[in-house]
Protein backbone atom coordinates (compact mmCIF):
# COMPACT_ATOMS: atom_id res chain seq x y z
CA UNK A 1 0.00 0.00 0.00
CA UNK A 2 1.58 3.21 -1.20
CA UNK A 3 1.16 6.11 1.10
CA UNK A 4 -0.82 9.23 0.25
CA UNK A 5 2.21 11.38 -0.49
CA UNK A 6 3.62 9.10 -3.18
CA UNK A 7 0.25 8.77 -4.90
CA UNK A 8 -0.22 12.52 -4.69
CA UNK A 9 3.22 13.06 -6.20
CA UNK A 10 2.44 10.68 -9.08
CA UNK A 11 -0.88 12.40 -9.69
CA UNK A 12 0.75 15.83 -9.80
CA UNK A 13 3.20 14.63 -12.41
CA UNK A 14 0.27 13.62 -14.64
CA UNK A 15 -0.66 10.05 -13.68
CA UNK A 16 -4.42 9.74 -14.03
CA UNK A 17 -4.58 6.33 -12.34
CA UNK A 18 -3.12 7.92 -9.20
CA UNK A 19 -5.94 10.43 -9.19
CA UNK A 20 -8.36 7.53 -9.44
CA UNK A 21 -6.73 5.89 -6.44
CA UNK A 22 -7.12 9.08 -4.45
CA UNK A 23 -10.74 9.22 -5.54
CA UNK A 24 -11.32 5.58 -4.53
CA UNK A 25 -9.83 6.17 -1.13
CA UNK A 26 -11.60 9.41 -0.31
CA UNK A 27 -14.93 8.92 -2.05
CA UNK A 28 -16.74 7.57 1.03
CA UNK A 29 -15.21 9.91 3.64
CA UNK A 30 -15.79 12.97 1.46
CA UNK A 31 -19.31 11.88 0.61
CA UNK A 32 -20.01 11.36 4.29
CA UNK A 33 -18.65 14.81 5.10
CA UNK A 34 -20.61 16.37 2.26
CA UNK A 35 -23.78 14.65 3.39
CA UNK A 36 -23.54 16.63 6.63
CA UNK A 37 -23.99 19.83 4.64
CA UNK A 38 -26.70 18.63 2.32
CA UNK A 39 -28.98 15.63 1.97
CA UNK A 40 -28.92 16.09 -1.79
CA UNK A 41 -26.77 13.22 -3.08
CA UNK A 42 -26.68 14.63 -6.61
CA UNK A 43 -25.33 17.92 -5.37
CA UNK A 44 -22.57 16.14 -3.46
CA UNK A 45 -21.77 14.07 -6.54
CA UNK A 46 -21.53 17.23 -8.61
CA UNK A 47 -19.25 18.77 -6.03
CA UNK A 48 -17.02 15.68 -6.03
CA UNK A 49 -16.91 15.63 -9.82
CA UNK A 50 -16.18 19.33 -9.86
CA UNK A 51 -13.38 18.85 -7.33
CA UNK A 52 -11.63 15.98 -9.09
CA UNK A 53 -11.88 17.43 -12.60
CA UNK A 54 -10.48 20.68 -11.25
CA UNK A 55 -7.68 18.83 -9.45
CA UNK A 56 -6.71 17.24 -12.75
CA UNK A 57 -6.86 20.47 -14.74
CA UNK A 58 -4.83 22.38 -12.17
CA UNK A 59 -2.40 19.62 -11.33
CA UNK A 60 0.57 21.67 -12.55
CA UNK A 61 -0.22 24.43 -10.10
CA UNK A 62 -0.98 22.21 -7.10
CA UNK A 63 1.69 22.33 -4.48
CA UNK A 64 3.03 19.49 -2.47
CA UNK A 65 0.79 19.17 0.52
CA UNK A 66 1.46 18.20 4.10
CA UNK A 67 -1.72 16.16 4.28
CA UNK A 68 -3.64 14.96 1.27
CA UNK A 69 -6.70 14.42 3.44
CA UNK A 70 -6.69 18.00 4.72
CA UNK A 71 -6.13 19.37 1.23
CA UNK A 72 -9.03 17.36 -0.18
CA UNK A 73 -11.38 18.22 2.68
CA UNK A 74 -10.62 21.89 2.44
CA UNK A 75 -11.03 22.01 -1.35
CA UNK A 76 -14.15 19.88 -1.21
CA UNK A 77 -15.70 22.01 1.53
CA UNK A 78 -15.03 25.16 -0.49
CA UNK A 79 -16.50 23.72 -3.67
CA UNK A 80 -19.57 22.35 -1.92
CA UNK A 81 -20.29 25.49 0.11
CA UNK A 82 -19.94 27.60 -3.04
CA UNK A 83 -22.51 25.40 -4.80
CA UNK A 84 -24.87 25.62 -1.85
CA UNK A 85 -24.42 29.36 -1.82
CA UNK A 86 -25.38 29.53 -5.49
CA UNK A 87 -28.54 27.61 -4.64
CA UNK A 88 -29.08 30.15 -1.85
CA UNK A 89 -29.22 27.47 0.78
CA UNK A 90 -28.19 28.30 4.26
CA UNK A 91 -25.16 26.72 5.80
CA UNK A 92 -26.24 23.68 7.76
CA UNK A 93 -24.60 20.69 9.35
CA UNK A 94 -26.78 17.73 10.18
CA UNK A 95 -27.03 15.90 13.46
CA UNK A 96 -25.37 12.46 13.46
CA UNK A 97 -27.64 9.66 12.40
CA UNK A 98 -27.61 5.88 12.26
CA UNK A 99 -26.12 5.36 15.68
CA UNK A 100 -26.81 2.10 17.41
CA UNK A 101 -30.48 2.28 18.24
CA UNK A 102 -32.00 1.63 21.62
CA UNK A 103 -30.95 -1.73 23.01
CA UNK A 104 -27.74 -1.86 21.00
CA UNK A 105 -24.28 -1.69 22.42
CA UNK A 106 -21.44 0.64 21.75
CA UNK A 107 -19.16 -0.68 19.10
CA UNK A 108 -16.38 -2.82 20.52
CA UNK A 109 -17.64 -2.00 23.96
CA UNK A 110 -16.65 -4.10 26.85
CA UNK A 111 -20.25 -3.89 28.12
CA UNK A 112 -19.25 -1.80 31.05
CA UNK A 113 -22.28 0.41 30.76
CA UNK A 114 -25.80 -0.80 31.23
CA UNK A 115 -27.99 -0.55 28.17
CA UNK A 116 -30.35 1.80 29.87
CA UNK A 117 -27.58 4.17 30.82
CA UNK A 118 -26.05 4.06 27.36
CA UNK A 119 -29.44 4.82 25.87
CA UNK A 120 -29.92 7.81 28.14
CA UNK A 121 -26.41 9.10 27.32
CA UNK A 122 -27.11 8.67 23.61
CA UNK A 123 -30.42 10.49 23.59
CA UNK A 124 -28.95 13.29 25.68
CA UNK A 125 -26.04 13.61 23.27
CA UNK A 126 -28.43 13.80 20.32
CA UNK A 127 -30.47 16.43 22.12
CA UNK A 128 -27.34 18.46 22.85
CA UNK A 129 -26.14 18.22 19.24
CA UNK A 130 -29.52 19.33 18.00
CA UNK A 131 -29.26 22.34 20.26
CA UNK A 132 -25.89 23.31 18.80
CA UNK A 133 -25.32 25.70 15.92
CA UNK A 134 -24.27 24.07 12.61
CA UNK A 135 -20.71 25.32 13.05
CA UNK A 136 -20.53 23.80 16.53
CA UNK A 137 -21.79 20.50 15.14
CA UNK A 138 -19.22 20.65 12.38
CA UNK A 139 -16.35 21.25 14.77
CA UNK A 140 -17.51 18.36 16.99
CA UNK A 141 -17.65 16.17 13.91
CA UNK A 142 -14.18 17.18 12.77
CA UNK A 143 -12.69 16.76 16.21
CA UNK A 144 -14.26 13.46 17.24
CA UNK A 145 -15.19 11.79 13.97
CA UNK A 146 -12.40 12.93 11.68
CA UNK A 147 -9.99 13.11 14.65
CA UNK A 148 -8.45 16.33 13.36
CA UNK A 149 -6.14 18.56 15.37
CA UNK A 150 -7.06 22.15 16.16
CA UNK A 151 -4.66 23.53 13.56
CA UNK A 152 -6.17 21.29 10.89
CA UNK A 153 -9.70 22.28 11.83
CA UNK A 154 -8.70 25.96 11.82
CA UNK A 155 -7.29 25.63 8.28
CA UNK A 156 -10.30 23.68 7.06
CA UNK A 157 -12.94 25.99 8.50
CA UNK A 158 -10.83 29.05 7.73
CA UNK A 159 -10.68 30.19 11.33
CA UNK A 160 -7.84 31.23 13.58
CA UNK A 161 -6.68 28.56 16.01
CA UNK A 162 -7.98 30.56 18.99
CA UNK A 163 -11.40 30.94 17.36
CA UNK A 164 -11.36 27.20 16.81
CA UNK A 165 -10.75 26.61 20.52
CA UNK A 166 -13.52 29.03 21.40
CA UNK A 167 -15.95 27.40 19.02
CA UNK A 168 -15.21 23.92 20.36
CA UNK A 169 -15.54 25.03 23.98
CA UNK A 170 -18.88 26.62 23.24
CA UNK A 171 -20.00 23.34 21.71
CA UNK A 172 -18.84 21.42 24.75
CA UNK A 173 -20.58 23.94 26.98
CA UNK A 174 -23.83 23.08 25.22
CA UNK A 175 -23.10 19.44 25.89
CA UNK A 176 -22.66 20.13 29.58
CA UNK A 177 -26.31 21.15 29.83
CA UNK A 178 -27.31 17.71 28.65
CA UNK A 179 -25.38 15.60 31.05
CA UNK A 180 -27.27 12.47 31.92
CA UNK A 181 -28.55 12.29 35.43
CA UNK A 182 -26.49 9.58 36.99
CA UNK A 183 -28.60 7.80 39.54
CA UNK A 184 -27.16 6.06 42.51
CA UNK A 185 -27.94 2.58 41.33
CA UNK A 186 -25.93 2.93 38.15
CA UNK A 187 -23.10 4.58 40.02
CA UNK A 188 -22.97 1.61 42.40
CA UNK A 189 -22.98 -0.78 39.49
CA UNK A 190 -20.10 1.09 37.91
CA UNK A 191 -18.06 1.13 41.10
CA UNK A 192 -18.20 -2.65 41.25
CA UNK A 193 -16.50 -2.88 37.84
CA UNK A 194 -12.77 -3.13 37.61
CA UNK A 195 -11.93 -1.95 34.18
CA UNK A 196 -12.82 0.91 31.99
Amino acid sequence: MQDDKDIWEAFRSGDESSLQRIFDKYYTPLFNYGHKFSADDHLIEDALQNLFVRLWKNRDGIKDTGSVKNYLYKSFRRVLLRMLEVQQREYSFSVPEGWPGPGQELPYDQTLISRERLESIRSNLVAALEKMTPRQREIIHLRYYEEMEYEEIAALMQLSVSSTYKLLYKAIDTLRQYLSKTDLLILLAVVSLKKI
Binding site: T28, P29, F31, N32, H35, D41, I44, E45, P96, E97, G98, W99, L106, P107, D109, L112, I113, R117, L118, I121, R122, L125, I140, H141, Y144, Y145, E147, L175, L179, S180, T182, I186, L187, V190, V191, L193, I196
Partner: peptide, 22 residues
Protein backbone atom coordinates in the same frame (compact mmCIF):
# COMPACT_ATOMS: atom_id res chain seq x y z
CA UNK B 1 -16.01 6.86 37.16
CA UNK B 2 -19.45 7.88 35.98
CA UNK B 3 -18.07 11.03 34.36
CA UNK B 4 -15.30 9.09 32.62
CA UNK B 5 -17.82 6.59 31.43
CA UNK B 6 -20.11 9.19 30.02
CA UNK B 7 -17.27 11.05 28.31
CA UNK B 8 -16.07 7.77 26.84
CA UNK B 9 -19.55 7.01 25.54
CA UNK B 10 -19.77 10.46 23.91
CA UNK B 11 -16.42 10.08 22.25
CA UNK B 12 -17.19 6.59 20.99
CA UNK B 13 -20.66 7.47 19.78
CA UNK B 14 -19.34 10.46 17.88
CA UNK B 15 -16.35 8.61 16.54
CA UNK B 16 -18.15 5.45 15.48
CA UNK B 17 -20.94 7.11 13.64
CA UNK B 18 -21.47 4.90 10.60
CA UNK B 19 -20.39 6.52 7.36
CA UNK B 20 -23.16 7.59 5.09
CA UNK B 21 -23.42 5.47 2.00
CA UNK B 22 -25.08 7.12 -0.97
Amino acid sequence: RAAMEEARAWILLLNREPAYSP
